[in-house]
């Protein structure tokens, strides 16, 4: 694949690199002679970082130190705070179930995000019951009372709409539970989501994750911040221009919201049926199971960590 890319070709990028030596200055011309001490077994030991690795050879010990340093170097570079926050927010969106604060926050947030038709619908119900309250009051002659209950209706229907998603959150025990919210909206995305190596040609795979990116984008722009450049590029491409990203994302996430709120209209059926019915929850799964399943299968044999 890229084996023609010799490190030497890239040397120019880093003048300060210490090993920047012309090959001719090497003491031995024959690489095999130089690394003859590094047999397959020793290499495997180094790669495994096995404690019993024969480090008595200074050259092996040096290589072992180099590898250990690489791990340390990786660990010493924590990602940016901003990226971490966006990732955690994405987690919260997808798995907010277990968190009480998130849960108490969500119904209201949903209401706020509820699409106009839903608000109109709820309002209409309120108005109708208000009017019928008036009518009843008029017929029964107890005007003030019904008015009260009538006024209470919007609140009730509101809390009803708020409570209908809450079983989702409260019943978090099921593993599939947290999924419906994002998954109900993600089908197009995650269908091809993390793109198998098997389908390298498909560049339509720009799709996956767009919803999540949009969520992050909208949240960031609300704060006057920006998403990282890769995310921005993908959104630009998806929206057909950076000017259209905001509206594109609004639409994409609105689909999600209306999809959820329609669940209120047809109580409960929409959301639960979404999980087994659509291919969505499964769609990440094949991908997920690919590394996971063999890994699990490998578990007993290799017994990492568990044994």
């Amino acid at each position: 694949m890229t084996t023609n890319e010799h490190p030497e070709q890239r040397k120019g990028s880093d003048p300060g690199r210490p090993d920047d030596e012309p090959p001719g200055r090497r003491p031995h011309g024959d690489p095999a002679e130089q690394t003859g001490w590094l047999d397959a077994e020793t290499a495997d030991h180094l790669l495994d970082a096995r404690p019993g690795a024969p480090h008595d050879d200074e050259r092996v010990a040096g290589l072992a130190r180099l590898l250990a340093s690489a791990v340390e170097e990786a660990d010493s570079r924590p990602g940016s705070r901003n990226t971490e926050r966006l990732v955690l927010e994405a987690f919260r969106d997808a798995h907010g179930a277990g968190r009480t604060p998130a849960r108490s926050r969500h119904p209201r947030a949903r209401w706020r995000r509820a699409s106009r038709p839903t608000k109109v619908l709820v309002g209409s119900i309120a108005a109708v019951s208000l009017l019928s309250g008036v009518a009843i009051a008029a017929t029964t002659g107890t005007l003030p009372g019904p008015f009260h209950s009538g006024r209470g209706t919007p609140g009730e229907s509101r809390s009803a709409s708020a409570s209908s998603p809450s079983p989702r959150t409260s019943g978090a025990a099921g593993a599939g539970r947290p999924a419906p919210a994002p998954s109900a909206t993600a089908p197009a995305d995650s269908g091809q989501a993390p793109t198998h190596p098997a389908t390298p040609g498909a560049s339509t795979v720009a799709q996956p994750g767009l919803k999540g990116l949009c969520t992050s984008y909208l949240r960031a722009s609300r704060r006057g911040e920006h998403v990282d450049s890769t995310a921005q590029r993908r959104l630009d491409a998806a929206a057909g221009g950076s000017a259209d990203v905001a509206s594109y994302c609004a639409r994409l996430t609105a689909d999600q919201t209306s999809g959820q709120t329609s669940g209120h209209g047809k109580p409960a059926t929409a959301t639960p049926s979404a999980s087994p019915g659509t291919a969505t929850p499964q769609s990440p799964a094949p991908h997920a199971s690919r590394p996971a399943t063999p890994a699990v299968a490998a578990g007993p044999t290799t017994g990492h960590g568990r044994a």
Binding site: F91, A94, H95, G176, P178, A193, P194, G212, P284
Partner: peptide, 12 residues
Amino acid sequence: HDVVRALGDFRG
């Protein structure tokens, strides 16, 4: 972002 979405499906 992918991991977060698919985490519920992960076993291992």
